[in-house]
Computed example of a mutant assay.
Amino acid sequence: MDLNTVTDVVSPAAVGQWRPGDAWLGGGTALFASPAPEIRRLLDLTTAGWEPLISRPDGLEIAATCTVATLAAHEHELIGKCCHAFLASFKIWNVATVGGNLCASLPAGPMIALGAALDGICLLLGPSGSREVPVRDFVTGEGRNALRDGELLRSMMLPQASMKAPTAFRQGSLHAYGRSAALLIGRRDAAGGFVLTVTAATTHPFVLRFGSLPSPEMLQVALAERIPEPAYVRDVHGQPAWRRHLTRMYAEQIRAELS
């Protein structure tokens, strides 16, 4: 969709240039997907020269401008599964960015699921400096996140310990290749704990932590107590009752797989 109110593009853009009416431009697949008459200027991050992927002793740093295609080539199994959870063609893969998926903050965002499930940390840069926010707290609702005026998402860091942990993945849609109606990821940590991340079915990520593998009954009770009914999404991709059913079914499948 054309953004016919845009009168200027700043490239390359940098922190400190933002003013009301500006929008950060990465891949643009989310930015150009719907009308945005309030936008007057685009701040281009694609020419910032950020290295897409940096492997460090403590984990993997993923630049906000890293494309889905670049990330999908990584050898980590869960990363590949989350990339394939996109409702997108290979053309979109080569343009859409990890940062764009996080900042769009849609329930079905698979990069949100990946980051929340692996205890990812978002690095945010703004006029007042930098700060770190866990991915699980970065998305606060449908289309809402923790970014303040003038801030941008620089990168997402996935800790090495989480990336080495055993995981299980479940994703369901109304039809083949449809948008995720529920996307759940389970993880066992080194101390024997169990972590379940619920996304797509809910307005924002829910991360349930247990000191040890819960029983089927304990898991179902935790899902009922920790995820309020209004948190389940209602749209053309699925009704709340069905999404809740998928969530509870997939949660037990994941628990059993990781037992």
Rank of each mutant, 00 (worst) to 15 (best):
G120F: 05
G193Y: 14
P35L: 00
P230R: 06
S105N: 06
V15T: 15
R188F: 12
C103K: 11
V139S: 10
R209H: 04
P214V: 13
T97K: 09
P228E: 03
L25P: 08
P166K: 08
A72E: 12
P57Q: 02
D8A: 15
D58I: 00
A161N: 13
V139N: 08
T70M: 05
P12Y: 05
A23T: 11
D8T: 13
R19Q: 15
E151R: 11
V135C: 07
C83T: 11
A200Y: 10
A96F: 04
A222V: 12
L258W: 03
A231W: 01
C122A: 15
G26A: 15
L213G: 06
A36C: 07
S215M: 10
H175P: 00
P159Q: 14
C122L: 11
D58V: 07
A30G: 14
F32P: 01
L125P: 00
A256V: 04
P35H: 00
A201I: 00
L152Y: 03
A88K: 12
V236L: 14
P240H: 02
W242E: 05
G21T: 12
A73R: 14
I39T: 14
A64E: 05
L223W: 02
S212G: 14
A48C: 15
I254H: 08
G141V: 12
P228H: 08
C83F: 10
A85P: 06
A176M: 09
F138T: 09
A116D: 07
H76C: 02
P228Q: 06
R136E: 13
T167D: 04
Q160G: 14
Q239I: 08
L53V: 13
G150P: 04
P20K: 09
D235L: 02
L106V: 07
A191H: 14
F169Y: 15
A251T: 09
H175W: 06
G211R: 09
R41W: 05
R179N: 07
G238W: 01
A146P: 05
A113L: 07
L60T: 10
T140K: 06
A168I: 01
G141M: 00
A165M: 01
L43C: 03
E61N: 04
L102P: 08
V221C: 11
E142T: 15
Y232E: 01
H237C: 05
G143A: 09
Q220K: 13
L158G: 05
C83M: 15
R41A: 05
H76T: 03
R234Y: 14
L258A: 12
A73E: 15
E225A: 09
I62H: 02
